[in-house]
Design a protein around this nucleic acid. Structure first.
Length: 612
DNA sequence: CACAAGCGCCAC
DNA sequence: AAACGTGGCGCTTGTG
């Protein structure tokens, strides 16, 4: 595993808020951090401190990013250290300033305090600090909360959280970024494998930069194309509260087929009752259950449900709320999921249905480079377990085809359900039936997920490749386990305890794979972002995105194992190559020389709908 | 009237 | 193929 070269000195500039809207910039050098870091108590010894007017901040940052003359101690741009990228970076982007590297203290804090690799440190054992906790809560506001307050509309950037009179919204003095930075560095230096967690934190912070840049640039979205798709599927737009024509016709068919002239098909309770009255043996109104039945109502009902979902989730109302200036500016929340996957705040950018992806179209003269990692999670599992047989199955081909070729199972669909079942903890059906064959062919990989499951069942913590650890089960879980072992425990107590233990085991089983896959994706994006920054194009290619991305290919979308780069057509093929190279690089960062491949499917297209 | 729970479906 | 991992989010319905 590679580590940062020790010969190039790192320079950090910690940004913090001062009174009256000024910014305190504290320079910290490697020398300040080395020495006996494990004994350091967190008291800072800054090399240099200066106060910058808020209005001068962008220019200050830009000057240091320029490197060379402005930064006498290093050729590289400094690492900007701030409490939260989401609080500092949007205003810099708006001013046309891109930064190369940062340390996101809030994201790092969450990882370091939970990681098994730093569990023995004072930093991890210290009680929670409400000032930092509040920052995390702020980043994961639900869409309802922020939407109701009117803060989540894509145009309203949370620039600096200052009231109009220039006073900070909350007393930031309690959240001292310099002290926090030193405390984190001390804990990292004392970690059992410092380079593992260093890589994770670097990737996480790079991800935070990417998230802000994704929101800033946005995903190119043609509202008129979206409107055309909706009209074709649903009928012309109807007034608020009314159904578009196609949906209304389907509603009438449903009512006729069930002899229920007043039925509201949007009411799950009413619908269930009516279906049962019509003699249909259903326990719910789920589409997969309805699909099993033969009755005239089924076809129109399934069609109605599909369209109702589209209308409510991504209909005209959604379009008007979220598409601004021909872009979807999704509000990503890096680390918003326990496993390290990202979440989003409003807009549903991580659930864009395939039906409307035709509205995602590159600007004139530009292309979309759409790339997704093929069978990412099983490949990550092969790397985690150092399972050569599974790595071989995925070499130069579809991994599920490779499993079939090895003779373990007979068809690709079987290989897929068996693999997913192994990673999710399925106990029924085909995947459970095929599990023993998979375990025989790939004993190391299967043993790894089984061990993670057993650890979870015992209430233990599991840890990803780079050091993200799972949360511990809550008080209710522990109580159910102790109750089952106490004298007088009933069979029901024991059943409940076993069931909850297995539930948590499925979580930890999946955690090791999903969290490590999220780390691969972060490394992939960080490396891609670095490579994209070095591709220059002429002014002739200028696009609709304001600086700093007007002339350069930039990330426009991310979804777990998939990215979209919006690129000038002239460099689109070059970008496609960089995307592949970045994937190979991510594989090496996580698994060194272990020969597991991470192939991508890459498409250079005008429309997202044409990518697959 | 506001809010939460339950349901169901979208994405990976 | 089955209902097994992580989420977001809109609808209806029940409740304070």
């Amino acid at each position: 595993m590679s580590a940062a070269s020790a010969t190039i000195e790192n320079v950090y500039i910690v940004l913090g808020a001062a009174d009256r809207g000024e910014v305190v910039a504290t320079t910290v050098r490697d020398d300040d951090l080395t020495g006996d870091a494990s004994k350091r108590t967190g008291s800072p010894r800054p090399s240099h401190t200066e106060v910058v007017e808020q209005s001068e901040l962008a220019a200050f940052v830009a000057a240091h990013e320029g490197g060379g003359s402005a930064c006498p101690v290093s050729d590289r741009a400094p690492r900007w250290v701030w409490d939260s990228t989401a609080r500092w970076y949007p205003q810099l982007l708006s001013a046309g300033v891109r930064v190369e590297r940062c340390v996101d203290l809030a994201l790092s804090r969450t990882i370091v305090r939970a990681s098994e690799l730093t569990a023995a440190t004072e930093y991890a054992r210290a009680p929670d600090d409400p000032a930092w906790h509040a920052l995390r809560a702020e980043a994961t506001l639900t869409a309802q909360e922020s939407g109701a307050a009117g803060h989540s509309s894509p145009t309203a950037q949370t620039l600096f959280d200052f009231e109009p009179d220039g006073q900070p919204l909350e007393p930031l003095a309690t959240r001292d970024p310099v002290a926090e930075f030193f405390a984190q560095q001390a804990a990292i230096a004392a970690a059992t494998e410092p380079n593992r967690i260093r890589l994770l934190l670097a990737a996480e912070s790079a991800g935070a930069l990417v998230a802000a840049e994704l929101r800033f640039a946005g995903l190119p979205w043609r509202a008129e194309m979206h409107d055309r798709l909706l009209t074709e599927l649903l009928g012309p737009r109807a007034p608020q509260g009314a159904r578009p024509a196609t949906m209304e016709r389907l509603a009438t068919s449903i009512r006729d087929a069930l002899g229920a002239p007043t039925l509201n098909p949007d009411s799950q309770a009413e619908l269930l009752k009516t279906l049962r009255r019509a003699g249909l043996q259903v326990t719910s109104t789920r589409a997969w259950e309805l699909r099993e039945l033969e009755h005239p109502v089924i076809a129109p009902l399934l069609e109605y449900k599909k369209l109702a979902r589209l209308l409510s989730a991504n209909g005209w109302t959604w379009m008007e709320q979220w598409i601004v200036g021909g872009r979807l500016h999704a509000d990503y929340v890096p680390g918003g999921v326990v496993t390290g996957r990202w979440a989003t705040n409003g807009g549903g950018a991580m659930q864009l249905p395939k039906q409307i992806r035709g509205a995602v179209v590159a600007d004139p003269g530009w292309k979309l480079v759409v790339a997704d990692a093929a069978q990412l999670e099983p490949r990550v599992l092969a790397g985690l377990a150092a399972d050569h047989a599974m790595a071989t199955a995925g070499r130069d081909r579809d991994l599920y085809d490779g499993i079939v070729s090895s003779g373990a199972v007979d068809t690709r669909p079987h290989a897929k359900v068996a693999m997913l079942g192994a990673m999710y903890g399925s106990t029924t059906g085909d995947s459970a039936r095929l599990a023993p064959r998979l375990a025989k062919a790939y004993p190391r990989a299967i043993a790894l997920v089984e061990q993670a499951a057993r650890a979870g069942e015992r209430g233990e913590v599991v840890t990803s490749r780079l050091g993200r650890s799972s949360p511990r089960p809550g008080a209710a879980w522990r109580l159910s386990q102790t109750r089952a072992t106490e004298p007088g425990a009933t069979p029901a107590d024991e059943r409940a305890a076993r069931s909850r233990a297995r539930d948590w085991g499925r979580f930890t089983r999946n955690f090791v794979v999903q969290a490590s896959a999220a780390e691969w994706a972060l490394c992939w994006m960080a490396e891609l972002r670095r490579r994209l920054a070095s591709i220059s194009v002429g002014a002739a290619e200028a696009g609709a995105v304001p600086p700093p991305f007007a002339y350069s290919p930039h990330l426009a979308f991310f979804l777990h194992d998939e990215v979209i780069v919006h690129a000038p057509a002239a460099v689109a093929e070059q970008v496609a190559e960089e995307v592949r190279a970045a994937a190979a690089s991510a594989g090496r960062l996580l698994f060194g020389d272990f020969p597991v491949e991470f192939p991508l499917s890459v498409a250079v297209v005008d429309s997202y709908a044409d990518a697959k």
